[in-house]
Amino acid sequence: MLSIEALREYGADVDEGMHRCMDNEQFYFMLINKILDDSSIEKLEEAIGSENLEAAFEAAHGFKGVLGNLALTPVYKPVSEMTELLRSKEKADYGKYIEEIKIKWAKLKDMCGQ
């Protein structure tokens, strides 16, 4: 079951995220639950797999924005770093990033009972 404490422990900047949601806990949780349906990670993984850095950037950029707004820092951070690398089309170990993202993502899902 998702809770403020759990999110805080997870590393989310809960205060910021909550405030952005006008301090409406229910609304904040609802949005977090919604983002779990997001297919950005799959898209990102696929694009990286096929070395389409353009498509990867698009997926990462949009995802980053949403994560940032919800203040889900543990996922936001690697996605943000990845976005910047992709923007300049740098060669990097994107697989490592995706790995990290997936771990944090799984943890979040777990917290939400999914």
Partner: peptide, 13 residues
């Protein structure tokens, strides 16, 4: 905005 969650947050504000 193409991201539904972003739209929701702004809408709420």
């Amino acid at each position: 905005d193409d991201e539904m969650i972003n739209r929701e947050i702004l809408g709420n504000i």
